[in-house]
Simulated assay, not measured.
Amino acid sequence: MGPLAYPTLDFSAQRVLERYAEEWVEPHPRLLLIAHDSQEMMPTSLFYDLDDTARGDALVVTKEEGADDGELYESFETLREMLAWGALFQFRLGKMPQRCGGTFSGDQSDILSLVEPVMSSLGFKQPISTGPFCGLYERADAAMICKGMPRHGFDEARSFSFGGSDAGVLRKILGEIAAASSLNVEVDEWTPALS
């Protein structure tokens, strides 16, 4: 996966097949191992949930080693969204001089349907199309990633991480989102901290 590689996740077919051969994971009609986590403390490998498909892909869930099937944690609605979210974070957002994180919340279940038109009007593009739980937006001076828990009953909020050239740019865009929609915009942290 080159620079897109996750530090402890091995997506290689060889490693996945080895884990099945070693009986670390048993074949299951619903779950398919897609990445082995090499962390020694509480490894949480990734599985496709084949009973829960969306847009030609499947729900990505994490499962701790040795956990029962009922102990699955929804991660992303699709693997495509997970990889694009990670790439935008690593290659754009993580390199921005100013970043902030927080939540969008409101009464509407599809929060991102209120965020997207504002971002589009401000010149942001979406690198890939996404569903209602993942938002990816970028333009030359800023990038934002949003995430919610797929089908987990948390429809009224989406977390966001936002990076840009300076705090003024980020505040202005967040202000536009708050003014143009019925959403509550809450910033929990600034990196570096604002003085």
Rank of each mutant, 00 (worst) to 15 (best):
L88A: 10
Q108M: 13
Q98K: 13
R92L: 05
P132A: 13
E64H: 12
I145W: 00
T103R: 14
F91Q: 13
A140M: 12
M144I: 11
F11M: 10
L50A: 07
A13C: 09
R80N: 00
E74G: 11
S75G: 03
R30I: 10
F104E: 09
A143Q: 08
L4K: 03
L114Q: 15
E64M: 11
E138S: 13
S38R: 02
R19P: 06
P27I: 08
S12H: 11
F76N: 13
L72S: 04
F76G: 08
T130Y: 12
H28M: 07
T53I: 03
L9H: 12
Q90V: 01
G123E: 00
L83C: 04
D10W: 13
S109K: 11
R19Q: 15
H36K: 15
K63E: 01
E65H: 14
R30V: 15
C134P: 15
L31D: 08
M119K: 04
I128Y: 01
P7L: 02
I111G: 12
S121K: 01
I145N: 01
L114H: 11
Q126G: 06
E64T: 07
A84S: 06
G86I: 00
A87I: 05
A143T: 12
I111H: 09
D10P: 12
S38D: 02
Y137M: 05
Y137E: 05
G86E: 14
A35C: 01
F11N: 11
G2Q: 08
G56Q: 03
S45K: 03
V115P: 07
D141H: 11
D51T: 09
Q98A: 14
P127A: 02
S105F: 04
